[in-house]
Nucleic acid binder design. Sequence first.
DNA 1: CAAGGCGGAG
DNA 2: CTCCGCCTTG
Lengths: 359, 359
Amino acid sequence: MLEARLQEAGTLKRLLDAIKELVTDANFECSEEGINLQAMDNSHVALVAVKMQPEAFEKYRCDRPMPLGVNLTSLTKVLKCAKDDDTCTLKAGDDGDVLGLLYEAKASDRIAEYEMKLMDIDTDTLGIPDTEYDASVTMPSAEFTRIVRDLSLLGESVRIEVNKEGVRFASEGEAANGNVLLKMTEAARQRWEDYDKDEEASGSAVKKEEGDEEGEGAKKGNVKKEVTDDDVVMVDDDDEDGEEEQEVKDDDDDDDEEETDEKRKKRKAGKQGKSSQPPKKPRTKKADGDGGDKGGVYIQLDQHVSLTFSLKYLVNFSKSATLSDTVMLMMSNDVPLLVKYKFGGGSICYYLAPKIGDD
Amino acid sequence: MLEARLQEAGTLKRLLDAIKELVTDANFECSEEGINLQAMDNSHVALVAVKMQPEAFEKYRCDRPMPLGVNLTSLTKVLKCAKDDDTCTLKAGDDGDVLGLLYEAKASDRIAEYEMKLMDIDTDTLGIPDTEYDASVTMPSAEFTRIVRDLSLLGESVRIEVNKEGVRFASEGEAANGNVLLKMTEAARQRWEDYDKDEEASGSAVKKEEGDEEGEGAKKGNVKKEVTDDDVVMVDDDDEDGEEEQEVKDDDDDDDEEETDEKRKKRKAGKQGKSSQPPKKPRTKKADGDGGDKGGVYIQLDQHVSLTFSLKYLVNFSKSATLSDTVMLMMSNDVPLLVKYKFGGGSICYYLAPKIGDD
DNA sequence: CAAGGCGGAG
DNA sequence: CTCCGCCTTG
């Protein structure tokens, strides 16, 4: 029996908007670990993996692992019936042939219930290579969206080159060639150097994706559980209170002359939007001399990489910018690119193999 | 060698948006005088002439005249890759087979470079008739956009009639006829009576367009203006007093026996919209009483003109409203209409021959 | 209200 | 397979 209450139906709506064009049917693998979805895109070129941990939910309960085979087109329709700020509760019985959705308006003067038929889906669960990436680029998701959209006007593919000064996106087309260079900035480094750490600590590092799959399929109860459900509720409440107040006050990111802890947190709240960035310790140093509190990229680099990808897919991936203000691109030569968006209590990862040669 | 740096890429983007549907390929004639473009529209009915003087640029250098044959569709794509407030630098070598575009974010953490292939274009440079226009109408560009869009819903063409009281746009269609009358106002006169002078002084009067092709505008001065301001003001005052009645009479010119409520309403609706026409205040007195600071038209008139044009083209021309709040319509009987928009350091002129007879 | 994406037709 | 028109989204 599954019961998962999401504070904001909008989260789920945006999630489905992000992947519904890539994948039409997928199993929502529900367990006490949360809900995971993994699927090849329709043309079997890209892979999308969504993870929603119990923390993503206001309340989460799942007695035993169960796969819920969902037609995403149908689910999208059903979700359209929710208002973004409705509370959304997912329910499934142990037989798992129907998914119930309950929408409750915050004012609780409106309750809507939907039931969606589920289906059996051949779960061709693919192992995701457990890569240590040579290069990791953390950048504003809107910037990534913009770049791939721009370049897709010119050509079919983009070469992404990372060195420690910056990242370059380059495309060649019939009518024109173009390249965009984003420089690493100190401000970006400070903003993001711990961005992915938090997640590893909480047990959902990139590398773990594969393990999860096997865990679900093969054994049960064996899964790591660093987080208890009780914690989830409490943490969630805390966030609620704190964020509200902070965001109200937040109207100027500009004036960080001297940075107080509070200001710093406020700035984060504003900057991250709906994303989940846990507050990080105050950093007294600031050095935003290189300008802009939104631009810039942060790069971690073991080795120079240069890879070519289909823009069509990247454009599709970039739809997830609605879920987070930040995106990470993880690359190693000759292995699939990982494009990762983190959002409150979860993440969405896209994998795309590089093009070989210069086609 | 050409190097031209534009403060805001948005200017160029808007310029291309304005003409790209009319013209697909054109030569950018670069010289130390600036950049000029002149082309017939695809169906060889209209002519568009763009001028960007060196002052339009933050930095401008062009060692020797060179024509850059540009496919505007491609250029539009490349320009889409710039953010509106990026600095945009155009570069071309002396061989002129490639146009380089460099976009720099103001924060300078983002640099994008594009290279566009150029082409050879048969430069059928057309002499633009060197007309002394009998009538010149200066008005808010948004108003013009609105009027031609409105009327294009009814019919194919519009008759533009100018007398010294105002300008009337009239269309007839299967389902309905409509006409919009804009009156000259004192406020508009004050706003615009010198509007085109500046340009004359700086050597780019309307008549000069043709001259520019050959070299430099030899002469200056264009619209004759025998109309005295005094007359205008007085007339305007009269209008103020008897606005309703005057309009009735105007309508009578066309066909009306007597004014019905319905007609009256139609006319008003047409006249107002988002436009200028300030609500008629009870005859305050002087001309500035008609005071919107945005509405009204300014008319210079030697001779009454009445010409008919294809609305389809005018609607296209009116896209340039993104470039300027003001548009000038210059007319003489039986010669092409000139629709002119001026913007920082440049101008865009459209020429369209009138329809003959009543087709 | 305008632009981009999708679907249908030639 | 390409182009045009309709529909949806920002």
